[in-house]
Amino acid sequence: MPMKSLAAFSKGTSIKSDPGANPVTTFRVVVDKEVTDHIRSWRLILLLALLALTFFGALYVSLSNIKSVVSNAQDPDSTFLYLKLLTSTDGTMPPFHVFLNFLGPLLGIALGFDAINSEQNNGTLIRLMAQPVYRDNLILAKFVSALILVGTLFFTLVLLMIGAGLCITGVLIEPVEVLRIFTFTILAVVYVGFWLSLSILFSIAFKQTATSALAAIGVWLFFTVFYQIVVNLVMAAFIPRHTIQTEADLVGYNEVMLNILRLAPSQLFSDATTTLLMPSVRSLGPMTMEQMAGAIPSPLPFTESLMVVWPQVSGLLAATFLCFAYSYYLFMRREIRS
């Protein structure tokens, strides 16, 4: 392939490069490219299939079970048909929001574990960094593009669910239900965002994509499987069973236990979703009989539920920002070589 004459370039070089490239447009360019990359990738298709499968499975189970659930007069939440669709089950399969507790991390990790190190290994990172692009814009763009996809995905699924519910049952949806379901969706996106930022952090910290994936999955497994066991063991060692004499002791013990468990993001997520999707839940800790006395088992208004889960939401957001801040710290002053 012989090289051609310079005519083409000369024509081009008569105008100099536009010096006014501002960071916002470059940010958008990177986001556009990342979203396109994700959409074209097999990875997203697989994740999409997995998520769709669980969603429709959960929906099927709850739909076949919905009649008995709604006609149960004992349950104060029985009037919230659409919330029931998301939470009820016949025991063969966990409801969707519990599933999401497992799948959310997987989604976040899968979309972020090779964000930076794969670019570094392919030699594209140094090329990218030689362009007038701010480094923080690059990580932020990686984060935002994955989150845009997750958000779109979740909102689509939820809207599909509402649509299916409308078609099959013919019951009109209450505004409160819409509010609760959407808040739940936003919460799910935030939850995935946490795992995404964690996996991007690992993708900066570790040079090999396999290592960063393993590290992220390790953290996820630790929190879902081992954390509870470890906390139980340690608590039992520090506060032996026989020292608990009174009811107050027991309540205190459980409170401490639950607070430690809340260091796990999955616990925060499950607390928050349970409260949002089951309006009758009014406290996330143990309650004594005195506290319960006089309370009418009725659903809380939306704002009250939101108040109950507020600490959880801020906890998740704080954890996300922490990961992000550390990613910035690691990436900003790092030497990039091919």
């Binding site: 074209r40 990738s41 392919n122 090329r127």
Partner: peptide
């Protein structure tokens, strides 16, 4: 030099161009 392997030569170049505000 490394390029995005799932993109064509043209797409790779255009991407760089856009990053430079073109």
């Amino acid at each position: 030099v490394g390029f995005y392997e799932n993109m064509t030569a043209l797409e790779n170049l255009v991407y760089t161009g856009k990053l430079n505000g073109i």
